[in-house]
């Protein structure tokens, strides 16, 4: 059906390279900035952001704590001090505003690995096949939350690659490299978007937060869609685009409201017809209402 053009080439031709990679560049900037701020301390002695993604301190004042790690700590039987709750509250509030899985595509360092694997997959034109169910991550999330009740310790944090990446870079990686190599190979050879889109319980947790996320992608101009399927190709969670892009006949809303959306904005980048915009839940509702009225 395609292969006549490479992914995003029409968007580049129409909008220019910069606009056709705008969100990708912003995301890499965000990931790089967070990494740099953390690294400036141990490497250059400039302490803006201390700690790592599990818990950190900005400018020696503002605490951040990963609510997912804190919940594991509590199921393992620890009642954290107030500072931890404050930090987790700040983080949770932030992700409720920007969308839970913004963590996955704008912050999480493992995204760099899995994006690289997905890019290689596209270059090698590896066949897409459904090997495991994307719902597995929620089962794994449940397991991660239940295990500490029995082991009494934060079992998942022993192997969690999401926290291990930054921690490894700042405090010593050891055999951690093997973990990331495995994720890359798994995503490249076994399952497309295997780690982030099927297994990772951290992403599953932030997807649950995403249920109340405020910022969403909206396929407002879907009547302009030419069915090039570039957005489906580039989207790490392609199933979520079906309704908003192709659901016109079934009167489905244009808002990409699925909780698995990471707000990565790549669909906006690669679309030559400007079908997608980034918007809020509120205006998304309005456009949905309009759609129904039509």
């Amino acid at each position: 059906m395609k292969n006549s053009h490479s992914l995003g080439s029409e968007a580049i031709a129409k909008k220019g390279w910069l606009l056709a990679n705008c969100f990708l560049l912003l995301r890499r900037l965000s990931q790089g900035l967070i990494l740099t701020l953390f690294l400036l301390g141990p490497w250059a002695g400039i302490w803006i952001l201390k700690g790592n993604l599990s818990s950190s301190l900005l400018l020696d004042v503002i605490p951040f704590t990963d609510p997912f790690v804190l919940m594991q700590s509590m199921t393992a039987g620890h009642l954290p001090i107030f500072e931890a709750f404050l930090g987790a509250g700040i983080v949770l509030l932030f992700y409720i505003v920007v969308g839970g899985r913004v963590f996955c595509s704008w912050v999480c360092p493992v995204n760099l690995i899995t994006d690289a694997a997905a890019w290689c997959r596209r270059q090698l034109k590896l066949r897409k096949e459904k090997v495991i169910n994307p719902q597995w991550r929620y089962w794994i999330l449940a397991m991660v939350m239940i295990l500490p009740l029995f082991t009494g310790v934060m079992t998942w944090e022993l192997v969690n690659p999401v926290s291990a990446f930054h921690r490894g870079l700042f405090f010593g990686m050891g055999l951690g490299w093997g973990l990331f190599l495995m994720i890359f190979l798994f995503d490249l050879l076994a399952v497309e978007n295997g780690w982030c889109g099927h297994l990772c319980p951290v992403g599953a947790f932030y997807a649950l937060v995403n249920k109340v996320g405020f910022i969403k992608v909206d396929a407002v101009n879907r009547e302009q869609c030419t069915d090039c399927l570039d957005c489906f190709d580039v989207c790490p969670e392609p199933a979520i685009l079906k309704g908003p892009v192709h659901g016109q006949k079934k009167n489905m809303g244009t808002l990409v409201s699925d909780m698995n959306c990471t707000n990565c904005g790549r669909c906006i980048d690669v679309c030559a017809e400007d079908v997608f915009v980034i918007t809020t839940v509120l205006s998304g509702f309005k456009s949905n209402v309009k759609q129904v009225e039509k």
Partner: peptide
């Protein structure tokens, strides 16, 4: 056992140590 359920492995203690004696366990 309490320590292992309380510690979120953030390394803030490691960075706070003026003598750099603390390390974080690697995988």
């Amino acid at each position: 056992s309490d320590f292992q359920s309380a510690c979120v492995r953030c390394g803030l203690c490691v960075e706070a140590c003026p003598y750099d004696i603390l390390k974080l366990g690697r995988l």
